[in-house]
Amino acid sequence: MRPEIHLALHHVRAAELRAEADAYRLAAAARRPRNLRTRLGWTLVEVGLRLAATPKPAAAIP
């Protein structure tokens, strides 16, 4: 194979990989806020449940 053809194929493949990585990055960026909202929501639920739980009796200090 001639070096020019090999180099041209390399550039085409590199461009395809860059486009695929950009698409993946954009999809991941679109998912982030929802994941953050979900984690925050469940954290708030957990805090609320801890606050609503009956308090344990205080241990006596000898």
Rank of each mutant, 00 (worst) to 15 (best):
residue 42 W to N: 10
residue 43 T to S: 14
residue 51 L to M: 14
residue 15 A to Y: 04
residue 62 P to A: 14
residue 56 K to E: 14
residue 23 A to W: 04
residue 49 L to I: 08
residue 51 L to Y: 05
residue 52 A to V: 13
residue 61 I to G: 00
residue 2 R to M: 05
residue 50 R to L: 15
residue 31 R to W: 02
residue 43 T to P: 00
residue 6 H to Y: 08
residue 18 R to W: 04
residue 13 R to W: 08
residue 15 A to I: 01
residue 29 A to C: 01
residue 30 A to Q: 11
residue 31 R to T: 00
residue 22 D to I: 05
residue 43 T to H: 11
residue 14 A to D: 07
residue 32 R to G: 01
residue 4 E to C: 06
residue 11 H to Q: 11
residue 11 H to P: 00
residue 46 E to S: 14
residue 57 P to Q: 07
residue 8 A to C: 05
residue 57 P to Y: 01
residue 1 M to D: 08
residue 8 A to E: 15
residue 25 R to I: 00
residue 60 A to T: 11
residue 46 E to H: 08
residue 26 L to A: 13
residue 60 A to L: 14
residue 29 A to S: 06
residue 42 W to H: 11
residue 34 R to Y: 05
residue 47 V to D: 07
residue 50 R to E: 09
residue 27 A to R: 15
residue 2 R to Y: 06
residue 49 L to R: 15
residue 38 T to K: 07
residue 31 R to Q: 12
residue 21 A to F: 03
residue 57 P to I: 00
residue 44 L to V: 10
residue 53 A to K: 09
residue 31 R to A: 15
residue 8 A to L: 14
residue 33 P to E: 07
residue 5 I to D: 15
residue 61 I to R: 15
residue 18 R to A: 12
residue 40 L to S: 09
residue 44 L to A: 14
residue 29 A to I: 00
residue 26 L to C: 04
residue 30 A to N: 03
residue 51 L to A: 15
residue 50 R to M: 12
residue 62 P to R: 13
residue 42 W to E: 11
residue 50 R to P: 02
residue 18 R to P: 01
residue 18 R to L: 09
residue 3 P to Q: 13
residue 9 L to W: 06
residue 49 L to H: 06
residue 14 A to W: 01
residue 58 A to N: 03
residue 30 A to P: 00
residue 2 R to I: 03
residue 11 H to V: 03
residue 29 A to T: 01
residue 50 R to G: 13
residue 35 N to S: 04
residue 30 A to W: 01
residue 32 R to Q: 10
residue 36 L to N: 08
residue 46 E to N: 10
residue 3 P to T: 09
residue 19 A to V: 02
residue 50 R to V: 09
residue 8 A to I: 03
residue 30 A to L: 08
residue 12 V to P: 01
residue 33 P to N: 05
residue 59 A to C: 00
residue 10 H to V: 06
residue 19 A to E: 12
residue 27 A to Q: 13
residue 27 A to F: 05
residue 11 H to F: 07
residue 16 E to G: 01
residue 44 L to Y: 01
residue 43 T to N: 13
residue 32 R to D: 02
residue 34 R to Q: 10
residue 52 A to I: 07
residue 59 A to H: 03
residue 53 A to N: 04
residue 41 G to E: 10
residue 49 L to K: 11
residue 58 A to C: 02
residue 16 E to S: 02
residue 53 A to H: 05
residue 23 A to Q: 14
residue 17 L to G: 02
residue 45 V to A: 14
residue 6 H to V: 15
residue 12 V to E: 13
residue 21 A to P: 00
residue 28 A to K: 09
